[in-house]
Design a protein around this nucleic acid. Structure first.
Lengths: 229, 229
DNA sequence: CCAAAAGTGTTTCACGTACACCCATGC
DNA sequence: GCATGGGTGTACGTGAAACACTTTTGG
């Protein structure tokens, strides 16, 4: 009996919805559980909070341990505390969402014994616990936030074409965008740095590459600047 | 030693930032602590989570116990889990924010021994724990959300004039709005029900009263409707 | 020369914004 | 009759949306 308290306490966990972007789909990284409950089921990467780490640190640690991912965009989503969300005992989890460059972390996902894999968000398996609810909420948050804040760049390679950028928005928002209007607006924002480089190894005219200009962005935000795309 | 676990566990709490609207100010309901730590300091109402209640239920219970408020708009804000936010031990808190009709709950606030009072958000005392951080974040959330979702009505009496409505937005957003444009836009939304009533006991022309038409609003949301004010 | 995607401007319409005076009521 | 806030319309400019063809490159 290593630890004792006056009052019964819920266990605290963290979970992460990790999004990645394919040429065709928005994907989520899932872990196959090798322990009960829900052994064999796919679930969000996550685990229990330790006393010597903040909630944010716990989420990053679990991400590293279970998927090998580090230094990614990660933000708190919401806390889920239904009574029966874990059949073993009372567990309250702080859900997060993360955005990663799929190209940089190609096969990465599989560190400890469990299997890990990317699934398209519109073709998901049945998930363990209440993870489908968490995932739905994370997706809604991403769709809402991507239009106001330049977080979408976290899903793209550092250098990207305007077509890639447009595809990213189309995939996340699940609707087509007009090419000319999109380019006009995107360039007018003044947060894209035009590079002296073009795509390589494509069987057609190579597109010019751009980079997200974070410095300009920060400067513009300071001057009260409304993003919106 | 009533409870023992394999692993040490953080305590879990809930806190509430309760907003109310005066004719001149946005106010927050604070509780004066009568126990250490921070005895005598003002703090957000809140307390520890029990195992037989969800996080949301805990927030509502604490609100009821400490301030007498019931059936108010209440939504989760974010979870705060810094290591040293509570000097006693590790406490992770799920912060919420609530919106109440100040007119309905005039003197209400003071149930158990502690003192409770409304403070204008731009004239706050020093708060206990990290409650100033929580409050700042709650305010930002309110300012962001009030323009997209009809939550502002929760701060007004059921029947209100367009001037009251406008004042509410001006106070929350901290900037003046044009009267004619505001009225045009507000009425064009189609979510205000015009009543056959006017203000009473005013020393000038009485304003027409309106009510938030929740049914219309729900219907319009279903048909994909973008609020924005 | 063919396939594939890159790149480019103009018109139209809706909506946001700026702005000032008369009206109704209570005292 | 005067003070106080209630209520109303128009003109202008910006920005969103619709829309199709030419250019470049590789195979």
């Amino acid at each position: 009996m290593p630890f004792a308290y006056e009052h019964p306490r819920a266990a605290m966990a963290v979970d992460c919805v990790v999004f990645g972007l394919d040429t065709a789909d928005l994907k989520v990284l899932l872990i196959q559980r090798d322990l009960d409950p829900f052994r064999g089921r796919w679930a969000l990467p996550g685990g229990f909070l330790r006393l010597d780490e903040t909630v944010d640190q716990a989420a990053r640690r679990e991400l590293r341990e279970e998927t090998g991912l580090e230094r990614v965009f990660l933000e708190q989503l919401a806390t889920f505390g239904d009574l029966d969300r874990d059949p073993r005992e009372r567990v309250v989890t702080v859900a997060h969402y993360a955005l990663v460059r799929l190209s940089d972390h190609r096969v990465q996902a599989a560190t400890d014994a469990r299997d890990a894999a990317w699934f398209a968000v519109d073709d998901l398996p049945t998930l363990a616990f209440d993870h489908d609810r968490i995932l739905t909420q994370a997706l809604a948050r991403l769709q809402g936030k991507v239009r106001w804040q330049p977080i979408g760049f976290e899903l793209l390679p550092e250098k990207f074409s305007l077509t890639q950028l447009q595809r990213m928005y189309e995939i996340i928002l699940e609707r087509p965008l007009d090419k000319r209007n999109f380019r006009k607006k995107a360039l007018a924002l003044g947060i894209l740095q035009e590079l002296d480089e073009v795509e390589q190894d494509v069987a057609h005219r190579a597109a010019r590459l751009y980079r997200f200009d974070e410095k300009s962005y920060r400067r513009m935000v300071k001057d009260g600047f409304h993003f919106e795309l």
